[in-house]
Simulated assay, not measured.
Amino acid sequence: MVLNVLPNGDSDTTPIVKEADAAGAYLVTQWNKPADLNPWDGYDTWISHITFDGVDSGRQIAEAMFEQMGGSGGIIALQGILDTAAAKDRFTGLQEALAENPDIELLDEQTADFDRTTGFEVTKTLITKHGDAIRGVWAANDDMALGALQALEAAGMSDVAVVGIDAVPEAVQAVADGTMTATVSVDGPWQGGVGLAMGYCALTGELDVAGLSNEQRAFFAEQTLINAENAEENLTPKADLEDFECGNLFDRVTGPVS
């Protein structure tokens, strides 16, 4: 068996890994794992853990938003599920960007659980609290950003910069239309295929799991800022089958997960 799994939170990863290992199933995990749990710690069939640099993506969308705002003004932040590394790291990226841009003020930050409806409700509450002082909305994913966008449109605040992460089609379209400022793509088609490709290559003997480096077994993969300049070309997600050939599986590694 081959499994390509996105655990809901860091605490879910350990039981998934142990069950897969006990069954002899090849496993690739994505996004969430405890910092002290690693594929090379005695797990023969846990091939790799793939994630993306949340600090970098959180900072990238913040900087794009600050530029759209002209370098000054108040913002609100919508955090994700706080038990996940993605939520923590992305917010750290925002904090780093804020430290470098003293004319941007963080008016408020609340968790909206990576959920669109919650993002709408939280933004609506924060609009009531802060009103026209809000010039930007930083959201830790696109679902919350799209919820925030709905709340802003309902309040007649169409000139507020809104950013998210994930490059879901509706968000990319919003960037192309100019209603959102930016999102970050981690290439969903590649994510969906590469873990299964790794398992297939291991099953067929074309990938020697024991011979992989630690960097190949837990790594950050490439991500791309989507803004007005490149949104149109990213409207339709595409998979390149060459990426899934056994010799190309690690071409998108940008660094080890430390």
Rank of each mutant, 00 (worst) to 15 (best):
T84E: 14
M65D: 08
G178N: 04
T29C: 12
L27A: 09
D177V: 13
D10P: 02
A23C: 01
I81A: 15
Y43Q: 04
M65Y: 06
W190A: 02
F66L: 06
G247Q: 08
A154M: 08
V160W: 11
A99N: 07
F250S: 10
A239T: 08
Q216F: 14
A64E: 07
L37Q: 09
W40C: 10
L225H: 09
A85P: 06
F220K: 09
D143W: 05
P102S: 08
Y43A: 05
A197L: 02
L94A: 14
D89W: 07
L249S: 13
G156A: 07
A25C: 06
E109F: 11
I76R: 09
A140L: 09
G24Y: 08
A77M: 06
Q110C: 14
T254A: 07
K88Q: 04
T224R: 12
G147F: 04
T117A: 11
A171Y: 00
L152W: 02
Y43F: 08
A231P: 00
I76H: 13
L107P: 00
G247E: 12
N248C: 07
A140R: 01
E109C: 09
K129I: 11
V2Y: 15
G255V: 02
M157A: 09
I61K: 01
I134Q: 08
D103N: 09
N32V: 03
L3M: 15
M157I: 01
Y43C: 14
I50K: 11
G71F: 09
V162T: 01
D89C: 07
G188H: 04
S213H: 15
W46D: 06
D159W: 14
A171T: 00
D113Y: 04
S57C: 15
S11R: 15
G54L: 15
L235V: 00
V194Q: 04
K129W: 05
G9L: 14
E153V: 02
N227T: 05
A97E: 14
L3V: 03
I165F: 07
T123L: 13
K88E: 06
G193T: 14
G156R: 02
L27R: 15
A133Q: 10
G199T: 00
C201T: 00
A151P: 00
G211P: 08
E63K: 14
T84P: 01
I47T: 05
S48G: 02
V160G: 06
Q110D: 03
H130G: 01
A221F: 05
P169H: 04
E19M: 04
Q60R: 03
D44Y: 03
V137E: 10
L196N: 04
K124D: 10
E170R: 05
N4R: 15
I47C: 11
P169E: 09
S72N: 14
L196A: 05
A174M: 01
L106I: 03
G136F: 08
E67V: 10
L235H: 02
Q216L: 11
D240A: 12
S11A: 04
K238F: 07
A20L: 11
A140H: 15
T183F: 08
L196K: 02
W46S: 10
K33I: 04
G93K: 03
S213R: 09
D83T: 08
A85W: 12
S213I: 07
T236N: 13
G73C: 14
E245D: 13
K129S: 10
